[in-house]
């Protein structure tokens, strides 16, 4: 269905939908990466927007210094996000529960303030990216349809990757540590290393989403890393269905479409979205994927 959208949107002359669905797919990648650690690993990271920001800034800063090659930009985005995730994870995973939530939040705030205080890259106001990432003429991101299909392919790849990881031996250890840590220790696994690796993979994947999002908006600001953004990504995971393969896509789709609809209807859309959020947490616990036949795995 998603493959058919570009010709349909072109026929209806509504390029806006293409734009919206592209954003949905980018956020589906971010949500899928969070789903890996939150859904399967039980690590409630409240700072996942950090990697969105790092990925975005990698593209923006490299473009600022004249490097527009997409291979370099996206590679750096993924690598830098993985490194930061390694550092944050190494400290955070020592803690658990509420401390983990807060320490990941605090690290992201740290990066947010770093983004605000570096005047050279626009500080508070953000920075325009003059040219989109250039993939040696292979894919032209300036063409909305080409970018759309690239996002679609990457999103499917990421959803598949998370699915494969979750059902591999590695993923089983991760899930075992989530459901019963003492027992998984008892049979000889030390969860720390597994969790850290998952944390780094998730960070790298979200860094990719950040690089794509920077290209999507042609603009980077510290708002990429704002803590409400982390909350949104987390909500997509929960709304779609925690620890499900398609959940992140469904969650991103519904949340962003509802946001767009409400925003088109009233300026005060958050006053409606907020209670909807509360209600869905209170009464709708299994997520959207739970409603679909065969949508729930694990």
């Amino acid at each position: 269905m998603l493959t058919l959208l570009p010709p349909v949107a072109a026929a209806l002359q509504e390029p806006f939908y293409l734009d919206l669905v592209r954003k949905v797919m980018i956020f589906a990648i971010a949500a899928a990466s969070l789903n890996l650690i939150l859904g399967y690993g039980g690590m409630v990271s409240f700072g996942h927007a950090a990697y969105l920001g790092i990925g975005g800034y990698a593209v923006g800063v490299l473009a600022f210094y004249g490097t527009t090659s997409g291979w370099v930009q996206w590679g750096v985005a993924i690598g830098a996000s993985a490194l930061v995730a390694l550092a944050i994870g190494a400290v955070s995973i020592r803690t658990s529960g509420i401390y983990f939530i807060m320490i990941t939040l605090a690290f992201t705030q740290m990066l947010y303030y770093l983004g605000i205080s570096i005047e050279e890259y626009g500080g508070d106001d953000g920075m325009r990216i003059k040219a989109r990432s250039d993939f040696s003429g292979l894919i032209d991101l300036g063409d909305p349809v080409a970018f759309y299909y690239l996002a679609l392919v990457l999103m499917l790849a990421c959803l598949f990757l998370v699915h494969r990881i979750a059902n591999s031996r590695f993923g089983m250890v991760l899930r075992a540590a989530k459901s019963n840590e003492p027992r998984s220790r008892g049979i000889g696994f030390s969860p720390y290393a597994y969790r850290l690796v998952a944390f780094v993979i998730a960070g790298a994947m979200c860094g990719l989403a950040g690089a794509m999002f920077a290209n999507h908006t042609s603009f980077i600001t510290p708002e990429f890393m704002h803590w409400t953004r982390s909350g949104e990504i987390m909500f997509m995971v929960i709304l779609g269905g925690i620890a499900t393969t398609a959940g992140p896509l469904l969650g991103a789709l519904v949340l962003l479409v509802v946001e767009t609809l409400l925003a088109g209807w009233t300026e005060h859309w958050q006053a409606i979205l907020g209670p909807l959020l509360v209600l869905s947490v209170l009464f709708f616990r299994r997520g959207l994927a739970g409603l679909m036949p065969g949508g729930k795995d694990g």
């Binding site: 909500f235 006053a271 907020g274 959020l277």
Partner: peptide, 12 residues
């Protein structure tokens, strides 16, 4: 769940 629900309250 608590984090998400109270996050919704903040928006409201």
């Amino acid at each position: 769940d608590q984090v998400l629900a109270t996050f919704g309250l903040i928006l409201f």
